[in-house]
């Protein structure tokens, strides 16, 4: 089937089988920042943003279902050379080690902060509990999301990436 969707702001026409998982379609389109870590919708490393405000595990959606929708992946977070505050904060707080969960974790956090711009530590842990990390023990990921929340709330400066 032919599908048309937007990925990171640019329109893509993809040819897929109905059974092609969205994550495979995204990766086959050259955007390999979105990873695959399980078959049971458990790990969340494939998390992408659907239509701006919704996080989905892209292994649990068929590519054909993305017809007419807008997908944002980790590759769409930075504005040119300027990192998104979440990317900057993950780096600053040592919120990643092997990096495999990082794109999904950042996308999940991105959606979390849209629904709750100033989350408590407990709310961050709750909100990211659909995403597994084997390296960091989550503590620095939580700190990174807290830093990003602050950066995003600063009136000028860091929030000027919009």
């Amino acid at each position: 089937m032919e599908i048309t969707l937007k990925i990171n702001g640019s329109e893509k026409k993809l040819s897929v089988e109905p059974r092609t998982l969205l994550v495979h379609a995204i990766r086959d389109a050259g955007l390999t920042g979105t990873h695959i870590g399980c078959d049971s919708s458990s790990c969340g490393v494939c998390t992408v943003v659907l239509d701006g405000k919704t996080a989905v595990k892209s292994c649990t959606m068929f590519a054909v279902q993305a017809e007419g929708h807008e997908i944002t992946t980790i590759e769409g977070m930075a504005q040119g050379d300027k990192l998104h505050p979440l990317q900057q904060a993950f780096h600053d707080q040592h919120g990643l080690q092997c990096g495999y969960c990082t794109p999904g974790m950042i996308m999940a956090a991105h959606v979390l902060l849209q629904h709750n711009p100033n989350p408590t530590e407990e709310e961050i842990r709750f909100g990211l509990s659909g995403n597994l990390c084997r390296c960091t023990g989550y503590q620095n990921i939580v700190k990174a999301v807290q830093q990003a929340a602050q950066m995003l709330q600063q009136p000028a400066g860091a929030a000027a990436d919009d």
């Binding site: 919708s41 458990s42 969340g44 998390t47 659907l50 919704t54 996080a55 989905v56 595990k57 649990t60 959606m61 999940a108 959606v111 979390l112 709750f126 909100g127 990211l128 509990s129 659909g130 995403n131």
Partner: peptide
């Protein structure tokens, strides 16, 4: 239900 990301769908 399930986990926070699954709940979006």
């Amino acid at each position: 239900v399930a986990d926070p990301i699954v709940r979006f769908r």
